[in-house]
Amino acid sequence: MDSILLQILNGLDKGSAYALIALGLTLIFGTLGVVNFAHGAIFMIGAFTAVTFSKLLSLSFITLDPEKKNFLGQPLEIKTAYVVDWFGPTVGNGLIDWAVPLSILFSIPIMLFVGYAMERGLIKHFYHRPHADQILVTFGLAIVLQEIIKSFFGANPIPTPAPEMFRGSIDLGVLVGFAENAIIYPYWRLIYFLFSALVIGGVFAFLQFTTFGMVVRAGMADRETVGLLGINIDRRFTIMFGIAAAVAGLAGVMYAPINSPNYHMGMDFLVLSFVVVVVGGMGSLAGAVAAGFLLGILESFASMNEIKSILPGIDQIIIYLIAIIILLTRPRGLMGRKGVMEE
């Protein structure tokens, strides 16, 4: 029982990332009808805003300490971060420590802008081109974005730690009445899950309870009629593209401490997220989220030793296998709408 619970928990953090990226993909697809292969790159850019922000915070100047000598006999160099100098050691070091959560604030406007620029600058011109062209141009864009990041940050993963107080693990088992050390779970993964639940809830609430969201939903159902009512639906869809980019970006920011960001992390997640979207059903937001968590959890079950000993290698292919089975038995995915992508 406890091992089942542990696997479910283990699947949650990856599942959260899948769900957030798939949610963004579906938002873009549902509103603009574009298949965005560059969405993984947006996730990666999000992670790198966290890297950039923590690097900016720890920018430092060097002073010489004439009292102390290093092992070569020269005066010892002391690095002091500017923020420590400005705000004093307590606040300054605290800021550096909390770089990742703080970069959420920093990344939201950036990601909104990236999304907005992508839509206006490139994708806008592809609405009336075949889907194959949309896939190909966004695939090219993904290569370009990831190579730009690579040329600035290098090819190696950059460790970006979580704040000190969240680095340990929590013994969740004790809280629900299992033996000690049965279910040990890192704090940050728990936070990641809660955070993504918050973001997903926020997006759904935004679409459900605001006038803006109502108009967007109406536009998703029938773009032409909404346009005829005198509403500038294109502008709203552009904003939705920005929001979708921000969702993927936030997923990336918070994922940085779990897996040190490298330039191809986006591509790795993208392939899986597409599979998630297809399993959930093209155009279904709830389906994308559900499928994200479902596949994340199934993946973690498949990597249990008990299962691997029966079906070796199943952990490597489970997601793809499920996607194939779903596509062949339920062509529209788990919760797909009728008439979406059925040419």
Binding site: V271, V278, G313, Q316, I317, Y320, I324, E343
Partner: peptide, 24 residues
């Protein structure tokens, strides 16, 4: 399936082959 679904199915098969060639 056709369209984007076909692309994703072929992608899934290729990734499966790649992962299996690496591991099992």
């Amino acid at each position: 399936r056709s369209g984007i679904y076909f692309s994703i199915l072929t992608l899934a098969f290729a990734q499966m082959s790649y992962n299996l060639a690496y591991s099992v």
